[in-house]
Write a protein that binds this DNA or RNA. Structure first.
Lengths: 212, 212
DNA sequence: GTCTATACCTAGATAGAC
DNA sequence: GTCTATCTAGGTATAGAC
């Protein structure tokens, strides 16, 4: 469930389990790009040969598929949790942003890979389709929030949604676990997105924590 | 100076000029990724053979270098224009955001390529270094704006700058010329970033245009 | 300025021994 | 589960004729 470094290694003796292989692959895919990373590179990072790597996985694409699935699943779990809430659309939109940030932070490497997919294969096209699904869902929530008067209506819903989640997604470029708790950064993103950068005079949000 | 489609073709008779070659290459690099695009693909898009392509350019990396240079140059020109203004840091930050959006929109394909570089070669590392320079410059402006009380000080300058320009940069994922004038989208980004999504009661900004 | 032909290399993936 | 050896496809780049 986690992409942590130490590699749990379940039972096989000296062997690497699938999670360890995936973690090493995804790390390289993100650092150099999927296409620029060879199966030799992945094998080398694990201290094994290419052939041994192929004993663990069916091919390069399988690694990509597993990674983007973990990212997509996380995002849709967040969306499902938000959908089942009994709040206003505006609050649910805030919640979706917050939970999206948490997913990004906790599955950072998987989401990073997802957001860089081009559509060059069936696997990549499927990933893009699910991303579009998520975008549509977010846009719809923005539309509802505008209709109930919770957020400004002078911006196209699709535009607002894309800028909003563009800000969220930009986290993959610089967020690292050392830079603070996911919950803290999530709160910062929500605050900035909804209240803006400008100095606020009337503070209706009392938890003014200095970030990090 | 522009990356327009029709390809000026200066003098050589049936020949392609460098700008046309670059435009075709960059379009493919963005659509499939730099590494996933072969020189054959570029040649095919131009209706010539690989060898002929190599008559025009020294190699694949030269195409990448030219593209990212156009992007970087645009961003630093914007930064230089802002630096020479006699405004408050807050207004200059707004101006940097606005002009950055304009550069993104006008050099969309070049900037897209720039923002996807990994650092796999000298060319890419140089591009990354210049991006970091721009980030530092933006962070500094945020710090100044906070010091003069123009924007909220309860967020780390580096965090605010990265989220702010993360929103700006996310434009490359969805902005297309058909979606509206660059100036319009730039105004929307500035409004959203500085005033937030939340409904505003007191409108101190009178140009409330419905976007697109 | 464009072509055909090709050198040279690295990629993904497999065979089969241990 | 891991290895060495190898197949095959496709990549960048060049030589040299027209």
């Amino acid at each position: 469930m986690d992409s942590a470094r130490p590699a749990p290694r379940r039972r096989g003796r000296p062997g690497h389990d699938l999670d360890a292989v995936l973690a090493a692959a995804v790390r390289l895919f993100n650092a150099r790009g999927y296409d620029a990373t060879s199966m030799f590179d992945v094998a080398e990072a694990l201290g094994i040969t290419k052939s041994t790597l192929y004993h663990h996985v069916s091919g390069k694409e399988q690694l990509l598929a597993m990674a983007v699935d973990r990212a997509v699943d996380g995002l849709f779990e967040a969306a499902a949790q938000v959908r089942d809430q009994q709040n206003t659309a505006t609050v649910r939109l805030q919640e979706l942003v917050r939970r999206s940030v948490l997913v990004l932070a906790e599955r950072l490497e998987f989401v990073t890979l997802l957001l860089r997919v081009h559509g060059n294969s069936e696997v990549e096209q499927h990933a893009l389709a699910r991303r579009r699904e998520f975008d549509a869902l977010a846009t719809d929530l923005v539309k509802q929030a505008q209709a109930e008067g919770g957020i400004r209506a002078d911006v196209e819903p699709a535009t607002a949604a894309r800028l909003l989640f563009g800000m969220v997604n930009s986290l993959i470029e610089w967020y690292r676990p050392e830079r603070g708790h996911p919950e803290t950064i999530a709160a910062t993103v929500v605050r900035l997105a909804f209240d803006g950068l400008r100095t606020i005079d009337t503070t209706d949000d009392q938890d003014e924590q200095q970030e990090q």
